Amino acid sequence: MADGMARELWERYEPVHDLVYFAPEVRQEADALGMRGFWMGYFALRAAPLGAVPPAVVTSCFYVFHPARVTRALPDAWSYASPTDVLAARQEALDAVMTGLFGPDTVGSAAFAEAADLAWEAAAAADTAGRVLAAANQALERPDRPTARLWQGLTTLREHRGDSHVAVLVGQGLGPVEAMVLKAAAGESDGALLRETRKWEQSDWEAAGTRLRERGLLTADGSLTAAGAVVRAEVEALTDAAAEGPWSALGSERTARLAELLEPLAHTVESSGLLPPGNPVGLTRGSYRAGR
């Protein structure tokens, strides 16, 4: 164990990864490919490493989206651009985003290249058994440009953690909606935002709440019970533990160095105003948490 650094690293790489969803340059690239609206671009950009798989596969991997949200975007997206074209476009877009946001001097620096190499090494060391999104991202070729190399390495690590989180949720008997209701009840995300963006009906949300109350995890007013708080904490602790492998492989000293290098980048993203309010990913620091 790299001194339990999995959560600290996640808090730093998640904002950088999230540029792919919210930076206007990425949306422009997606539109140029023919993607029709935000959600078609979102699913195409994130699912492209999997190839042109059926919507059911993406629904399973992404876990919290209603199948109808996915099928509105896929497989139609692949009629406008192939996964290979989408992967190339997202590299170009992220290079433009990171160069513009962090500045050419920063992305051209030795420290930035060091961060890219450390992230890539940690991602390459990730155990992807049972982690489909992580495996698909890990299998991509190593980019030459430090911007693309850093973003892709962090994205592999992010999907590795996400796959681990899904495995923990399944093990805890928490389906997609129950998981979101529990997260909202813990105050980590805005419940209405999660329900609406993931395209679940209010009746689905209420039914999940009923199931959680029957398990003794929610009170009548929707707050966490003591047992619910224990389950929520256990989900996070197990996720952290399952995401620790890359940092154990990288070692404590170099993991701490990567965290140090990522800190100003994360702060820049968090201060940029690009991240939406509502904290859909449940970060506990930065502009998501502050409701920017």
Score class of each variant (00 low, 15 high):
Thr255Glu: 09
Ala47His: 11
Glu214Lys: 11
Trp39Pro: 07
Gly228Leu: 06
Pro264Ile: 02
Val170Trp: 03
Ala2Tyr: 04
Trp39Arg: 03
Val230Ala: 15
Ala48Arg: 04
Leu154Trp: 05
Leu250Asn: 05
Ser164Thr: 15
Val26Leu: 04
Gly37Phe: 09
Gly41Phe: 00
Glu29Gly: 13
Arg292Trp: 06
Ala123Glu: 10
Leu265Pro: 00
Phe43Lys: 07
Glu25Gln: 15
Asp18Tyr: 07
Gly245Val: 00
Met5Ile: 13
Thr59Leu: 04
Pro176Ser: 02
Asp127His: 11
Ser79Ala: 10
Tyr63Val: 00
Ser189Gln: 08
Ala136Arg: 08
Gly216Glu: 05
Phe102Ser: 06
Pro49Asp: 12
Asp105Lys: 09
Ala89Ile: 00
Glu121Leu: 03
Pro83Cys: 07
Ser79Trp: 07
Glu159Thr: 06
Ala184Trp: 11
Arg149Val: 01
Ala186Arg: 10
Lys199Leu: 13
Ala6Met: 01
Leu9Asp: 05
Glu236Pro: 01
Ala30His: 02
Arg292Lys: 02
Val177His: 06
Ser252Tyr: 10
Thr59Arg: 15
Leu50His: 15
Gln138Cys: 03
Arg158Trp: 15
Gly51Lys: 10
Glu253Leu: 09
Asp240Leu: 10
Met98Lys: 07
Thr268Leu: 02
Ala89Arg: 05
His160Gln: 08
Ala123Ile: 02
Asp31Lys: 09
Gly251Trp: 09
Ala243Glu: 07
Ala116Glu: 06
Thr255Tyr: 05
Leu33His: 12
Ala179Arg: 03
Ala125Ser: 14
Ala233Lys: 13
Glu196Ala: 10
Met40Arg: 07
Ala124Phe: 00
Thr84Lys: 13
Ala44Asp: 11
Ser272Ile: 01
Ser189Ala: 14
Glu141Met: 04
Arg254Gln: 15
Val235Met: 13
Pro277Asp: 03
Gly251Val: 05
Asp3Ile: 02
Leu224Tyr: 07
Val64Glu: 13
Ala6His: 00
Gln172Val: 00
